[in-house]
Design a protein around this nucleic acid. Structure first.
Lengths: 156, 156
DNA sequence: TAAAATTAGTTGCTAAGACAACTAAATTTT
DNA sequence: AAAATTTAGTTGTCTTAGCAACTAATTTTA
């Protein structure tokens, strides 16, 4: 396969910032997933985000979790179901508002979560060590600007 | 709605760069998707990437597309099936190597794709207008550094 | 040349994102 | 108070991502 003509097209995609963002997001998630799997931990990165949140917050409902993680109701609903099956969290009906669910970590969930913290810290550091503090700040700002420019009235 | 509470950013998660990258990727994709839908175009952003690629390249196999888009074989296989059903592309067996498929746009696909180009350009510009050229370059570089740090021998 | 390994593509499974439509409970309106 | 609206959560459908396991065709290698 070929000469250099492949190059310019590759160029176009590679220089497409949107595409790069998506690609990076995917790679980052994949890396985290693989580290977790290599330690025999049966949880996805996305599920971890919920668990991590519940480490600090107690008695939250699903909507609160969704707002925090910017995930919609169906997504949270199903993720919660999975985490419940895995025994990390417990869900009960609120007795203040019967529509709401009250979500908490189980004792097991809490213990595991705390044990996992250092590993997660490491995962986070893995891809970012090559960036200076300034670069990280700039990255954060740039991403924020993009999100702000695209912000839909509905969800932010 | 509301005041400046938007930027009070919920501590931990919001400051997690990885999470920001993912969030931005999602928002960007969503925006593109909505613009396309609002114009009554029945194609997803991801499908578009394949169509766009085929606008320049003829007689490619699925693996080539996958390499270009960093998507794996099953993903490309199923996306191609969908695009074929929609009538944008045609797939035939290679007579050089019977394992390979030869992928091309249909006449319709090519026509549509060309018509869509300006809209896609606009979608790309939408989220990036707030960034200076320098900021875009820095963003691209930072993302590249992250990917490089996390690069798995297998796929990059 | 026959056996082994590689390659291109497909299918099955699970997870998550987005959307629509729905139930049930609470709140607002009239 | 009754009717209308809003809210929290669930279920269904479609799309993509990643993994494993598979078929069929092509190369390697013994």
């Amino acid at each position: 396969m070929a000469n250099g003509m492949q190059q310019d097209e590759r160029e176009i995609l590679q220089h497409n910032l949107y595409y790069q963002i998506e690609l990076t997001a995917r790679r980052v998630k994949l890396h985290g997933q693989q580290v977790l799997a290599s330690h025999g931990i049966d949880i996805t990165i996305d599920q971890w985000l919920i668990v991590r949140f519940l480490l600090d917050k107690k008695d939250v409902n699903q909507l609160t979790i969704g707002e925090e993680l910017y995930k919609d109701k169906p997504t949270i609903s199903r993720m919660i179901q999975k985490l419940e099956k895995k025994g990390w969290i417990i869900k009960r009906k609120s007795d203040v508002d019967a529509r709401e669910m009250v979500i908490n970590l189980t004792a097991d969930g809490r213990r595991w979560a705390k044990e996992m913290l250092p590993m997660i810290q490491q995962i986070r550091a893995d891809g970012l060590y090559a960036l200076t503090l300034e670069e990280k700040q700039q990255l954060s700002q740039a991403l924020g600007k993009i999100r702000k420019s695209l912000a839909t009235r509905s969800s932010e």
